[in-house]
Each structure stands twice: as structure tokens, then as C-alpha cells.
């Protein structure tokens, strides 16, 4: 792995320091490149597509830098990990900012938790969904290797993914949150692995070791 490289897509949406330093921590010499350069991103062995903030700005920044097409190309070619807003941007559309068309790489929509969210016992739930929640692994996948089912990961988001297929993990927060999606060489998580302690670092290490996406990891759908 020492000769491999991972590009962290920098498009002005949030602080990438944590992602980069977590990758360096687990990377065993992997070259971590924080960049908005299309050629560099396309030349890397793996790509992390992070993001925090609002989806309209996210899509605008991607388009302004020509990175929307780059992400499409990466998604077709090499291991890619979407994180938080980076995950949401991969879907068809989001309800945030009065409705925004996203990259449509994965099927599904991003929905608002609402202002009247309750758990099954009727307790009011705060929005954003902020803190450590359990993630139930719904498929076997190389990125879950060595991570106990129902491990807690750190979330912070007000909009959540609702996908019809390719769900790899779920969390419960008044609604069922699709906390992880997996489709061929794309893996996407709503939580922040770079802020999720040992479980998160393990997921990042698994990503850096993930070489050959295998179609049979995924359940038959449709």
C-alpha cells in the first residue's frame, strides 16, 4: 500500500484536515493528497469525497470547478468513499435549500428530519442528529471488516438519505437513516469515520486496503 495514493476532494465545503490526518494515521505510508485538481483526482488510486455544509453550495462549488463530471468518472472507475454531504451529493436529489438536483450516481433522495421528530417511545429528538449512533450493517462488505455490527459512529446532519437499494448500513433516529450505501466501487457513509474513534479509523483503513470491488458482495435487488 505504501506506493498508493488517495485524493481527498477539496471543493471548499468544509474542513478536510481531519479526514487527511486520519488517513495519514491509518495509511501506512499512503500518499494523501488534498486537492481540487481534476487530473490529480483522476490520477489517484482512491478518492475520498467529503463535505459539510449545505447541498446547494456543494453542487455549485462542484460545478464551478468542473468536479461534478470528475466525481462521475471516479465513481465509474476506482474505489470512492463519500462522507456526509459527499454521500448526499451522490444521490438523485435533496430536499435541502428548497430542493437541489444532485449527481444521481446512486438512486435515492435526501430528506429533512422535520421539526417534529420523535422516537418510538414518543421522546422528542433534536435536529441535527448529532452524536454517536449505532449502525446496523445490512450487508457484508470489505469496508465493515473487523467492525462489530451495531458499532457506534459519529453523526452530524439534519437531512438523511432514503435509498431504494444498495443500503449497506442503517441507523435509527425517529426514521430509518440509510447510514451507508455500497454499489460496486462506491461506498458512502452519512457518519464521519474520521471522527468516530477506532471504528471509524478501521473503516478508513479498510477503504485504503479495498482493491477489488466484487459484485457478489451485494444483494440481488429489484
Amino acid at each position: 500500500m505504501s506506493s498508493s495514493s488517495v485524493a481527498v476532494v477539496d471543493y471548499g465545503m468544509g474542513n478536510l484536515h481531519s479526514v487527511a490526518s486520519a488517513l495519514e494515521k491509518v495509511g501506512d505510508g499512503v500518499k494523501v493528497i488534498v486537492t481540487d485538481c481534476p487530473e490529480t483526482i483522476l490520477g489517484a488510486d482512491r478518492v475520498i469525497f467529503p463535505g459539510v455544509g449545505a447541498i446547494r453550495d456543494c453542487m455549485a462549488e462542484l460545478k464551478a470547478r468542473g468536479l461534478d463530471e470528475v466525481i462521475q468518472e471516479v465513481a465509474a472507475q476506482k474505489p470512492m468513499l463519500g462522507i456526509c454531504l459527499g454521500m448526499q451529493a451522490l444521490l438523485e436529489s435533496s430536499e435541502e435549500n428548497d430542493g437541489v438536483e444532485c449527481l444521481d450516481i446512486l438512486p435515492g433522495a435526501v430528506k429533512f428530519f422535520g421539526n417534529d421528530l420523535h422516537d418510538s417511545a414518543g421522546t422528542r429528538l433534536k435536529v441535527p442528529h448529532m452524536g454517536w449512533n449505532n449502525v446496523a450493517q445490512t450487508i457484508e462488505h470489505p469496508l465493515w471488516a473487523g467492525i462489530a455490527n451495531d458499532s457506534r459512529f459519529y453523526f452530524v446532519h439534519s437531512y438523511y438519505v432514503d435509498a431504494p437499494e444498495f443500503v449497506a448500513g442503517t441507523a435509527d433516529y425517529g426514521v430509518q437513516v440509510h447510514a451507508a450505501l455500497a454499489c460496486e466501487n462506491v461506498f458512502a457513509v452519512q457518519f464521519h469515520p474520521e471522527k468516530s474513534g477506532e471504528a471509524g479509523l478501521r473503516l478508513l483503513r479498510n477503504f485504503l486496503n479495498w482493491d477489488r470491488p466484487v459484485a457478489s458482495f451485494f444483494p440481488v435487488t429489484g
Binding site: 429528538l125 442528529h129 452524536g131 454517536w132 449512533n133 451495531d150 457506534r152 453523526f155
Partner: peptide, 8 residues
């Protein structure tokens, strides 16, 4: 199985 209360 729910969001954990945080200790900071």
C-alpha cells in the same frame, strides 16, 4: 439502540 448521550 439509539443516539448516545455524550460525555464531554
Amino acid at each position: 439502540m439509539a443516539l448516545a448521550k455524550r460525555i464531554i
